[in-house]
């Protein structure tokens, strides 16, 4: 464990807490893409299959349970909770995410570290996470103005993977046989997708103005 990865995990946890705060405090999920939440739930389920088979550390197990539990709770809330689901931007959240799932699974069958079921699913979860934010970014562009908590949620979600890239660079130089090129390349794509969001987020912070994404 290194400082980049720990801050990355804490940033990821913070993004989930901000999202839970927004949904719980405002009883609204306006501006949040249900499709991105469903993709993230799938990412965690596919990636953490080894939850009960490989014990790595208490921290690792606890965080996996938190990520799986919170992502399923958010999807449940947005689909079932009568107050919350009323505020869901159904007509704006129309990105066909099933294509993302199919494409990532096909890619995982072709490009993986070992052609074994757990490894293919792991690669699938890495590729899917890289593109899972697309429905959310599309929704933000369509919905124009973004409330603060939603903006902070998306910012933290993007920042965590950028910190993971620093972690991979650090591990590459400090560990002899470290090679996570699948996660690195996917992580770079994932972070690059946030580039324009980061730019407008920075502008809104610098000018102390409302976060506006050009539609």
């Amino acid at each position: 464990m290194n400082v980049f990865r720990l801050t990355g995990d804490m940033t990821h946890l913070a993004s989930i807490l901000v999202l839970l705060l927004k949904i719980y405090a405002t009883k609204s999920c306006s501006g949040i893409s249900l499709k991105t939440q469903e993709l993230y739930a799938l990412v965690f389920l596919a990636r953490y299959l080894n939850l009960f088979t490989d014990f790595i550390s208490v921290y690792n197990t606890v965080m996996k349970l938190v990520f799986i539990g919170s992502s399923l709770a958010i999807v449940w809330c947005m689909r079932m909770h009568k107050m919350v689901k009323r505020s869901y931007d159904q007509e704006l959240d129309t990105f066909r995410h099933y294509f993302l799932i199919a494409g990532c699974f096909l890619l995982a069958l072709l490009v993986n570290e070992k052609f074994m079921f757990p490894e293919v699913l792991w690669a699938f979860s890495i590729y899917l996470e890289a593109v899972s934010t697309i429905p959310q970014l599309v929704l933000l562009q369509r919905s124009g103005n973004v409330d603060n908590l939603t903006g902070q949620y998306v910012f933290l979600l993007g920042a965590y993977r950028a910190l993971y890239i620093l972690n991979w660079i650090y591990r590459y130089f400090t560990e002899p046989h470290f090679s996570r090129w699948i996660a690195c390349v996917a992580g770079l794509v994932q972070t690059a997708l946030y580039a324009d969001f980061f730019y407008y987020y920075f502008l809104s912070w610098k000018n102390n103005a409302k976060l506006q994404l050009p539609s």
Binding site: R5, D9, H12, I56, N60, M63, K64, M116, R180
Partner: peptide, 10 residues
Amino acid sequence: AEEAEKHDEL
């Protein structure tokens, strides 16, 4: 056999 890369990251 080469141990499958243990995925120790979240």
